[in-house]
Design a binder for these strands. Structure first.
Lengths: 233, 233
DNA sequence: AATGTTTTTATGTACGTACATAATAGCCTG
DNA sequence: CAGGCTATTATGTACGTACATAAAAACATT
């Protein structure tokens, strides 16, 4: 049958995708092993490996040693979101970015915060509230707590011109963290800051980052109604 | 100085992360080239390549041919969300999954739908509305349009027991798509279905998938208040 | 100084061999 | 037959060489 040869891992990947899409290899099916595919495709096993590994990363294939490679029965859609600095996000929309510091104080946080950040309840943290603007209209409110034990330099920064969002990126390295997305109703204060009616549905991003075992910062971003976070599948 | 040798790509990756974290290589800095690092680490260049490529994929490094590799100045946080089948999501919470078909009809969609799906405005599509339950309480409403030109078998499926969410996964392959996350206020109907008060903030996932140049399905999922989509960074 | 051409360089990838490792399947033993 | 040991097998990874390719840098030309 004289198959065309696939000389690079991308073409191998494409061919595998084609076979899955055409149902030649149906969801749940075991596909031939790397060595056999290498022979069939006329390339090295390492090339096949690269292609299949990449497909496994994106959730299309399930691979297990000895058990072999099979087409994912229920392809979990993996959506990779790029959470950029807000200024970039605004500027990419072709709008003018603006920033406004609302509040900056060193106080003891509510227990919900000290609990999540695993700081002592009596410990004062730096609390920064700010507004991000797009073409002079409110875009998002930022409500942030900074662990000044971990980032003492933050105490010297006013955050009047530069947002904590950006300052921390440069000055506070973190090892890991987590992020959550949800919908919340605008409180009276938030509604006023964003210039929307109270109770509006706001898109919320909550982020908590850690440096080893110590929390660095915890932030909630609330976006004006209409905001949508999107990505390709 | 006799550095320990790094014999595998993961340890190389860790060492690179350490150097970035310790600011030995600061954001924006150009780091040594692969060949030099290979000598320093006592491993093959391909091993260094694997480690650096992986870090570039996760946004920690920026690489460009000839220009070299530099530490990302503004590490765009890449959050990878796994969008599972709703039944799985519910069951993983340890709850009992339930499903309820609300409406199923073949009608001409509003122009907003035919426009997005690039079907002729006069073309009838299959409209399916359903409710997903967790321990017998509403969890999410699904509002879906299916392009029956692309998936004619859907016309034969009642969707009374099996959700369109799962049926399509098995029967309607797609080549690409996009997904968006937002916050919306509950309309009167949605509020009733989800048993929440009108105007509540609901988390929305909108998805549109394509098979080559034809749209397969467009769906909006609205989750009950309190829902949060989360992932590690 | 503006423009086009060539060289250089760092990353990107293919290949084939070798060995590591996880997980299954088969075997053995009490 | 249960329980544990062993062999088998498919993926995972390391290595070194070779060549491809993008992009910057250097150079030449007008």
């Amino acid at each position: 049958m004289n198959m065309p040869t696939f000389r690079n891992w991308r073409s191998v990947q494409e061919e595998v995708r084609r076979r899955i899409h055409s149902r030649k290899w149906a969801p749940g099916d075991l596909i031939p092993n790397e060595a056999d595919l290498a022979i069939e495709f006329g390339c090295a096993r390492s090339t096949v490996n690269r292609a299949l590994r990449s497909l496994a990363d994106s959730g299309v294939l399930d691979r297990k040693r000895k058990a072999g490679t099979r087409v994912a029965a229920e392809p979990v859609a993996k959506a990779t979101l790029d959470i950029a600095v807000i200024r970039h996000e605004v500027e990419e929309h072709g709008a003018k970015y603006g920033y406004l510091l609302i509040k900056r104080s060193q106080t003891t946080p509510p227990v919900s915060v000290s609990g999540a950040m695993k700081t002592r309840a009596s410990e004062a943290l730096l609390h920064v509230q700010a507004l991000h603007l797009s073409d002079d209209t409110p875009y998002a409110v930022e409500d942030r707590w900074i662990n000044t034990n971990v980032v003492p330099e933050a105490k010297l920064e006013s955050f009047e011109k530069l947002s904590a969002n950006e300052w921390l990126m440069k000055h506070a390295p973190y090892t890991h963290g987590d992020i959550g997305f949800s919908a919340v109703q605008a409180t009276a204060e938030h509604a006023e800051m964003l210039n929307v009616s109270q109770g509006s549905a706001l898109f919320a991003i909550d982020r908590l980052t850690w440096d080893s075992s110590a929390s660095v910062t915890m932030v909630r971003l609330l976006f004006t109604p209409g905001y949508q976070l999107r990505t390709a599948l």
